[in-house]
Design a protein around this nucleic acid. Structure first.
Lengths: 214, 214
DNA sequence: TGTAATGTTTACCAATCGGTCAAATTATCT
DNA sequence: AGATAATTTGACCGATTGGTAAACATTACA
């Protein structure tokens, strides 16, 4: 009778899963470049290769698409930080954290830019998640770092700003990709730039934090 | 008779200077948050406290406003890098460069976000400036850094990625301000965070680059 | 195979978009 | 003060916006 909104159904159809995936993929393309306000449903529809009302059959509003994307990104985005192990030794933990974050910048630049766009706008949709789960996780890992410093494994430093500096340096290669390419020029802008960055950043942090090399 | 567009006049009126300043100030507010596509002329007009046609009397199009802003920001943004002195000693040059960039993140966050927005969108309006003047300036300073390494004043490292890492770590405090505040929480989010960041970053880079302290 | 639920599209809506126009107002200069 | 140039605004335009209604097409399942 009335239109049975996809969201209302109990079981998700095969078509629903496929189409929702296609839509979110297209939405990520557009949102990550133009931000929320700058994105139109028509743009997403065109990239997704379906009609606008069809998008709105799966996601009632533009907000709903954005929300679904943000939720997904927020979760996977913190994976590397969660993997940060208190029992590991500082050198390998820092090194692999940097490497993992750089890999994400290389392999998921759109997700990084979506997040960056949200931050630039003042996090209107995710401020609660920042103050809650994110802060809690960072607090926990900051304590690990502080313990390392107390144990003399690394030099004393502000663990929060340490985490910020790893975030910013790695995400830079996704968010400011155009600038990085332009400055490096044709000759050094090949995909090798991520390995160069990894080599440079690992050394910067290992030496900068006074980590005894093993 | 016909409307004498402000742009056509030879001498700039006092009113012209004042109003153009007010408009650009308002435009910076809105563009820096919502990006180019996400910004409407009506929004700018409301912030500026004048009617939309009045804005368009001073700037013919939305692009013109954005262009004027970007040009202004691009110039002042590179000031700290230009001040980077080949004859200075590495420690003081690096330290003051970091400090200057952090001061800009603190005092001109909107300008930083405007630039970040432009980068996220793939620099559609400024790609030429990146490949031209910016690359030239970075190339020049990279040579300075390489010379320092050759002279044994700092450890060998990729000068381009070094510059990227200073850019990213400092601008982070402007572009990701919400996140920084949220993670630091009420207690540490006061204005002291910039001094904490300066202390941490200066140490990170001085030690990380193997600079002999004087 | 038939039919009910699910999926898709064309046509459309009111609101907002960037921008124009002409009339009205204000500042400037003699 | 009066004339002229500069400034400001309300009314408006066609295009685009987010979203809806309803008819049509397809799928899943008895």
């Amino acid at each position: 009778m009335a239109i049975p909104r996809a969201a209302k159904t109990q079981r998700r159809t095969r078509i629903q899963e496929e189409k929702e995936e296609i839509i979110l993929e297209a939405a990520l393309d557009v949102f990550s470049v133009n931000g929320f306000r700058g994105t139109t449903i028509d743009q997403i529809a065109e990239v997704a290769g379906m009609s606008k009302p069809n998008l709105l059959y799966y996601f009632r509003t533009k907000e709903a698409m954005h929300r679904a994307l943000i939720d997904r990104v927020l979760f996977t985005w913190l994976e590397p930080l969660r993997a940060f192990d208190a029992n590991g030794n500082p050198e390998s933990e820092i090194r692999s954290y940097i490497r993992r974050k750089l890999e994400m910048a290389r392999d998921f630049p759109r997700e990084s830019r979506l997040f960056a766009n949200e931050m630039l706008q003042g996090a209107p949709h995710v401020e609660d998640e920042l103050r809650g789960p994110l802060k809690a996780l960072v607090d926990e890992k900051a304590e690990v770092i502080r313990a390392w410093a107390t144990a003399g494994k690394i030099t004393k430093c502000d663990p929060y700003h340490l985490i910020f500096s790893i975030w910013s340096t790695t995400q830079h290669y996704a968010d400011f990709d155009v600038q990085v390419r332009a400055v490096l020029g044709q000759e050094h802008a090949g995909e090798g730039r991520f390995e160069d960055a990894a080599r440079y950043l690992e050394k910067l942090f290992v030496d900068g934090l006074g980590i005894r090399r093993s």
